[in-house]
Amino acid sequence: MKVLLSIKPEYAEKIFEGTKRFEFRKSVYRSKDVKTVVVYVTRPVGQIIGEFDVDEILCETPDELWALTSDHSGISKDFFDEYFMGRERSFALAVGDVRRYDSPLNPSELIANFTPPQSYMYIDDELGRPSTAQLALAF
């Protein structure tokens, strides 16, 4: 199973360049079957550009999470602190193998009434290919 995540352009680029090895989230998906994140890059890009494998999900206090991830966070400490302000728990997806698609995909052409997910959107996956009808042609 895969999830579609909305990621800002500057952070998506860092993930695919290999300089950002953790994607931070205030909450994460509940399914333990998710192994891959499909990356929707937010406006002004507005396209799906690739995917990455999730090596593990870290759940810690913000201070502990920063101590574990800061060397490969791809973000500033100030941004991190502001993002997790007031939170007792914070999450990071450890980025594994990344795959940038040869051509970016327009999600509106693949998913009827596409609205970028605020958090995440599940995508069914069988044998490495999404079985979700709207995305079947994309992969």
Results as ranks from 00 to 15, higher is better:
E17R: 12
R43Q: 13
D53E: 15
P130Y: 04
E23H: 01
P107C: 06
E56I: 10
V41H: 03
Q47A: 11
A133T: 10
P9I: 00
D97T: 12
E88A: 13
D33L: 12
I111V: 14
V37L: 06
R25A: 00
G86Y: 11
E82V: 11
Q118T: 11
W66Q: 05
E60D: 14
I48A: 03
Q134D: 12
S73H: 03
F84M: 07
N106T: 03
I75S: 09
D81P: 09
P104Q: 03
F22W: 05
R100G: 03
F80I: 09
Y120Q: 01
I49N: 02
L137W: 09
M1A: 14
E109T: 10
R25E: 02
E10H: 11
F16K: 01
L68K: 15
T61R: 14
R89S: 14
Y122F: 03
R99T: 12
S103F: 13
A67P: 09
Y101C: 01
V28Y: 01
F139K: 00
P130M: 03
E64F: 09
L68V: 04
R87Q: 15
A136K: 15
K26E: 05
A92N: 04
E126H: 14
V98G: 05
V39G: 00
L110K: 09
F91T: 05
T115H: 11
T19Y: 02
S31C: 00
M121Y: 08
E82Q: 14
A138N: 05
I123W: 00
M85Q: 14
V95M: 04
T36L: 12
I111N: 09
S27D: 10
F84A: 01
L135V: 07
N106C: 07
K35Y: 11
S131T: 15
